[in-house]
Amino acid sequence: MFADSLYTRSSLKVADSVLIAEIELNPAHPLYAGHFPDAPVLPGVVQLQILKEILEGHFGRKLLLKEMRTCKFLRIINPFETSGLVIEAKMKETDSLEVVASVSHADMVYLKAQVSYTFCSNA
């Protein structure tokens, strides 16, 4: 949905059930013209969608949001001031995918969330 237009993934590493992805935002994306002109902000729902897309790319399967236990948007992401972001997702697979995630840049944390996803069938 947003991969390769709103953002590009520059790296992806997974070790000990922790996924770390580095992405670069595209500040020229048309989304920012409406959100907001002269003061662009990456919408929170889009941050959550990027997290989901990164996870789907890793697993090679579509995910469906099952439950969001917590979600805190701690700072505004202006793509002209902060274009590089690190997405960290601690994952636990059971009958669903349990994720504790954060979005950050350097020592600034922008998002913290605890989310559960179900894997969609490939049929």
Score class of each variant (00 low, 15 high):
2 F>T: 02
45 V>A: 12
103 V>N: 01
96 S>A: 09
81 E>F: 07
80 F>C: 06
103 V>K: 01
74 L>N: 09
74 L>F: 06
105 H>Q: 15
69 R>Y: 03
107 D>A: 14
93 E>R: 11
12 L>Q: 11
52 K>F: 04
40 P>H: 00
69 R>L: 15
114 Q>E: 12
62 K>H: 12
74 L>Y: 04
27 P>V: 06
100 V>W: 08
2 F>H: 14
46 V>K: 00
8 T>R: 11
65 L>K: 07
34 G>A: 04
22 E>Y: 05
57 G>Q: 15
117 Y>S: 07
56 E>H: 12
55 L>H: 07
75 R>V: 00
81 E>I: 06
61 R>H: 11
6 L>A: 02
121 S>N: 10
121 S>T: 12
89 A>R: 08
41 V>S: 05
103 V>T: 11
113 A>Q: 00
54 I>T: 12
22 E>W: 06
56 E>C: 09
76 I>C: 05
107 D>H: 09
79 P>Q: 10
6 L>G: 03
12 L>T: 13
91 M>T: 14
31 L>C: 00
19 L>M: 15
86 V>N: 06
20 I>T: 15
79 P>H: 06
16 D>I: 01
46 V>E: 00
48 L>C: 15
35 H>S: 08
7 Y>R: 01
28 A>T: 02
102 S>M: 14
54 I>R: 10
85 L>K: 08
79 P>K: 04
10 S>K: 06
46 V>I: 15
49 Q>Y: 04
98 E>F: 04
19 L>V: 11
90 K>I: 14
7 Y>D: 04
80 F>N: 12
84 G>Q: 15
91 M>P: 04
114 Q>H: 09
93 E>L: 09
60 G>Y: 07
51 L>W: 06
32 Y>W: 07
119 F>D: 02
13 K>R: 14
31 L>T: 03
98 E>G: 02
63 L>C: 01
17 S>W: 04
39 A>D: 15
77 I>S: 04
74 L>W: 03
35 H>Q: 13
80 F>G: 01
38 D>K: 04
13 K>I: 11
98 E>W: 03
110 Y>L: 00
